[in-house]
Design a protein around this nucleic acid. Sequence first.
DNA 1: CGCGGGTCGGTGACATGTCAACGATTGTCC
DNA 2: GGACAATCGTTGACATGTCACCGACCCGCG
Lengths: 160, 160
Amino acid sequence: MVEPRWLGEQEAALWQAYRATHRELMRALEARMITNSGLSGADYALLHPLSEAEGGVLRTRDLGRSVGWERSRLSHQVSRMEKRGLVCREECTSDARGSMVRLTPLGRTAIDSAAPDHVAAVRTYFFDHLTTEEQTQLAALLDRVAAGIPMTCVPSDCEE
Amino acid sequence: MVEPRWLGEQEAALWQAYRATHRELMRALEARMITNSGLSGADYALLHPLSEAEGGVLRTRDLGRSVGWERSRLSHQVSRMEKRGLVCREECTSDARGSMVRLTPLGRTAIDSAAPDHVAAVRTYFFDHLTTEEQTQLAALLDRVAAGIPMTCVPSDCEE
DNA sequence: CGCGGGTCGGTGACATGTCAACGATTGTCC
DNA sequence: GGACAATCGTTGACATGTCACCGACCCGCG
């Protein structure tokens, strides 16, 4: 086997820039949200789908799917948020294995007060730098990249 | 003040896709590196500039700047890597406040064995999906976004 | 029915990242 | 020289994320 194709200077710089920019972008959004509403990015990520769900309740499994998190991460985060009164857990009547997560009035207030500024921040820091055409191109690019990422899978999932 | 401009459907989908794809991409790269060489992404991030430095030594401050990390994060990570024998600390002769981080032979072996596959993975999962033109466009886009991100700064830094 | 594999949520141990604070040192200004 | 702010690295407390595992439960099949 021959020498692998190393990254060229431009590629290395792009990779570096991509990672650094993502990190800074997330850091800025997170910091702004925390000072603005006391919510972390993780809090917001869960409160958002809950606030749009019928009655402010979701089954834990469905909440996990809508944010793309693993179960343990979700469980830990819900525990922390429960301790702070943002959400509460309930039994799942249709499946005794499951559980439900419900937005409390405090959680509703929190997400309602945090959302407008967060959306504005995402615009300011991200979308305002993209033309409509660039948005389309970027979406296509992300689709291609995402499709090429190997899944964490049990062996049987790999053949589908 | 009127209703803020909410994200449209396409924008929301793009934002979602961007975050999900980044997360999955990083997860895949990290998992592959760990199974392949036992190094985490954080390990690799530090070993890479060290391996390119003169003599495999860098002042902690400079290492921190080259990866863009805060001092405490860097210090913790170096401590963990020191415990595993990948690097060692040394005194800084030119400035008694400072310290140096040196790549050990074990660390050198680790980065040398991890690098080829990692580079190949970055190609496979990322660069293979981008044309040269797209790389140029993306680099420009990232520059614009990065330039618009407010820095964490002491008040006096804000006016420069 | 009851066995057995899969699903679901939770837990504890640990790795990682952030924040505030400290002690030591350096450089600056008078 | 000496006060004083800034820099440097570290530490401890805590928040977050990952992993392996458990216990309860659902469902299909004999």
